[in-house]
Measured scan of single mutants.
Amino acid sequence: SSQSQGISSSSTSTMPNSSQSSHSSSGTLSSLETVSTQELYSIPEDQEPEDQEPEEPTPAPWARLWALQDGFANLECVNDNYWFGRDKSCEYCFDEPLLKRTDKYRTYSKKHFRIFREVGPKNSYIAYIEDHSGNGTFVNTELVGKGKRRPLNNNSEIALSLSRNKVFVFFDLTVDDQSVYPKALRDEYIMSKTLGSGACGEVKLAFERKTCKKVAIKIISKRKFAIGSAREADPALNVETEIEILKKLNHPCIIKIKNFFDAEDYYIVLELMEGGELFDKVVGNKRLKEATCKLYFYQMLLAVQYLHENGIIHRDLKPENVLLSSQEEDCLIKITDFGHSKILGETSLMRTLCGTPTYLAPEVLVSVGTAGYNRAVDCWSLGVILFICLSGYPPFSEHRTQVSLKDQITSGKYNFIPEVWAEVSEKALDLVKKLLVVDPKARFTTEEALRHPWLQDEDMKRKFQDLLSEENESTALPQVLAQPSTSRKRPREGEAEGAETTKRPAVCAAVL
């Protein structure tokens, strides 16, 4: 046999249950609850290399294929790409003598399909299967379609040439079993990697079954959420508030809700932002270029202005709740996480202390139980975000031990490091100062900020419009641009040419 590394010779191994799959997660993409704000000051410096380099560890398999027929071997997927077919160049070659004697062998292509993985959001991997055969590759009886790919989820059954000719079961060793999710959700989405997690739940990458488009699904544990919100009269209202707010909003710089499922837990389906959180971008770069800050901040102002015009105060604006559309420097941003939002009543007064301390406005800290506050709290938070983006460190921090965090904020005395700000323009610093004003009545509004000289930049605004146009074009394009080929190089076993392929839609398939 010419099988590559990772293939075992026996096809009769006992199949494990899916609970053996491991679970991976990374930083929070968007969480309903406010958790302790991640610290920006503690960015690790590059460490000196050791005298002796450690040995390379043996790579762990990321997936496993269990053979369902004699003549096929099990495969431990270690590499990122595997070709399957009769050709000797394939990493998994159909060359077992037992297999060659079967009637089905002649229906398999020289290069029938490939399984591979690509880097997705949060640097996690996504597994795909890609059909290159004349007679078809099927996943859970659905045709992939020649020249098309679809994501592979845990426990997928792979069939060759005929939908009933099941050859492998695919085990993704990095994700959960699909069966743990409600059927209504599974009918519409293929669940994938964990993108982030918080005290009350997690955010998962998923794929729409009909279109193969990526989405983010925010899962909120009702049990954990009820415990964490025990002081509230009705904890469920917080989730329902977020859903109702998101459904009503329609702005290019605000995250869109696509679906909602109320089962044992809450499942909020949101558009996916491939670039992750602004927080991670700031930490990764230490600070952002001023031109990049301007492009992002302009969009934040437009989003918050839209919220305020619609009578909504976000109340928890922070870099973790600003998501980026891509890994590119120039990209769209979207505001997310409306769990603490407040729809303005007639009095415009709110007395609930919520939000993240580092970003809270002075009037929030001094008015607990005594007075109210209004939309100006969001403008203060925007000032803190702009400060961080321009400088790479927070204006107020618990680690300045000589003054408490509350006193720093209520006095408006931010930590100004001259040598850092020497590289920032006077106009940018002036806008920061106009937003970090203790008196909410004297603080800049979103309208005033948008009129500030720093943002009178036609090149930046043109760039934003171009990015918007690109997004609109990409969302308007159909996901499947061509029909699967019906040509046949070899006959199917026991049926006429093209008899099955043309009847089945290529579900969740995307043209390369």
Score class of each variant (00 low, 15 high):
residue 244 E to G: 15
residue 245 I to L: 02
residue 246 L to K: 00
residue 248 K to P: 00
residue 248 K to Q: 07
residue 250 N to L: 13
residue 250 N to G: 10
residue 251 H to T: 04
residue 251 H to P: 02
residue 252 P to W: 05
residue 253 C to Q: 08
residue 254 I to D: 00
residue 254 I to P: 00
residue 257 I to Y: 01
residue 258 K to C: 09
residue 259 N to T: 06
residue 260 F to N: 11
residue 261 F to C: 08
residue 263 A to V: 08
residue 264 E to G: 06
residue 265 D to A: 11
residue 267 Y to D: 06
residue 267 Y to H: 10
residue 268 I to L: 13
residue 269 V to D: 06
residue 270 L to P: 01
residue 271 E to P: 13
residue 271 E to N: 14
residue 271 E to L: 09
residue 273 M to A: 03
residue 273 M to S: 09
residue 276 G to L: 11
residue 276 G to Q: 11
residue 276 G to T: 02
residue 276 G to F: 06
residue 279 F to M: 13
residue 279 F to H: 06
residue 279 F to G: 03
residue 280 D to G: 07
residue 282 V to Q: 06
residue 284 G to Y: 10
residue 289 K to I: 13
residue 295 L to N: 12
residue 297 F to R: 04
residue 298 Y to G: 06
residue 298 Y to I: 15
residue 300 M to H: 02
residue 302 L to W: 07
residue 304 V to F: 08
residue 306 Y to P: 00
residue 307 L to A: 13
residue 308 H to E: 02
residue 308 H to G: 02
residue 308 H to D: 09
residue 309 E to R: 09
residue 309 E to L: 09
residue 312 I to K: 00
residue 312 I to G: 02
residue 314 H to D: 04
residue 317 L to I: 10
residue 318 K to W: 01
residue 319 P to I: 01
residue 319 P to M: 09
residue 321 N to Y: 03
residue 322 V to I: 08
residue 324 L to I: 07
residue 325 S to P: 11
residue 325 S to Q: 06
residue 327 Q to I: 12
residue 327 Q to Y: 11
residue 329 E to Y: 12
residue 330 D to T: 08
residue 330 D to Q: 15
residue 331 C to F: 07
residue 332 L to R: 06
residue 333 I to G: 00
residue 333 I to R: 01
residue 334 K to C: 11
residue 335 I to C: 12
residue 336 T to K: 03
residue 337 D to R: 03
residue 338 F to M: 05
residue 342 K to I: 01
residue 345 G to K: 11
residue 345 G to T: 07
residue 345 G to L: 08
residue 346 E to A: 13
residue 349 L to G: 13
residue 349 L to C: 10
residue 350 M to D: 01
residue 351 R to Y: 03
residue 351 R to N: 07
residue 351 R to S: 06
residue 352 T to C: 03
residue 352 T to N: 01
residue 353 L to K: 15
residue 354 C to K: 02
residue 354 C to V: 10
residue 356 T to P: 00
residue 357 P to R: 15
residue 357 P to H: 03
residue 359 Y to V: 03
residue 359 Y to A: 01
residue 360 L to D: 02
residue 360 L to E: 07
residue 361 A to V: 04
residue 362 P to F: 07
residue 364 V to S: 03
residue 364 V to L: 08
residue 365 L to C: 12
residue 367 S to V: 10
residue 370 T to A: 11
residue 371 A to P: 09
residue 373 Y to C: 03
residue 373 Y to G: 05
residue 373 Y to A: 01
residue 374 N to P: 03
residue 376 A to P: 12
residue 377 V to Q: 02
residue 377 V to H: 01
residue 377 V to T: 03
residue 378 D to G: 01
residue 379 C to Y: 12
residue 380 W to A: 00
residue 384 V to A: 00
residue 389 C to R: 03
residue 392 G to A: 13
residue 396 F to L: 01
residue 398 E to D: 10
residue 400 R to T: 09
residue 402 Q to K: 10
residue 403 V to I: 12
residue 405 L to G: 01
residue 411 S to N: 09
residue 416 F to Y: 14
residue 417 I to W: 02
residue 420 V to M: 11
residue 420 V to I: 13
residue 420 V to S: 12
residue 421 W to S: 04
residue 422 A to G: 03
residue 427 K to D: 05
residue 429 L to C: 15
residue 430 D to V: 15
residue 434 K to R: 14
residue 438 V to A: 12
residue 438 V to L: 04
residue 440 P to L: 03
residue 441 K to W: 11
residue 446 T to F: 13
residue 448 E to F: 07
residue 463 K to E: 03
residue 463 K to H: 00
residue 465 Q to S: 03
residue 466 D to N: 06
residue 470 E to D: 13
residue 471 E to M: 05
residue 472 N to D: 10
residue 472 N to W: 08
residue 475 T to Q: 11
residue 475 T to L: 06
residue 482 A to L: 15
residue 483 Q to K: 10
residue 483 Q to I: 04
residue 486 T to E: 12
residue 487 S to C: 05
residue 487 S to M: 00
residue 488 R to T: 02
residue 488 R to I: 00
residue 489 K to I: 01
residue 489 K to F: 10
residue 490 R to Q: 14
residue 491 P to H: 14
residue 494 G to V: 04
residue 495 E to C: 07
residue 496 A to N: 07
residue 498 G to S: 07
residue 500 E to S: 14
residue 501 T to Y: 15
residue 502 T to D: 02
residue 502 T to V: 02
residue 503 K to R: 11
residue 509 A to Q: 09
residue 510 A to Y: 01
residue 510 A to H: 04
residue 511 V to A: 12
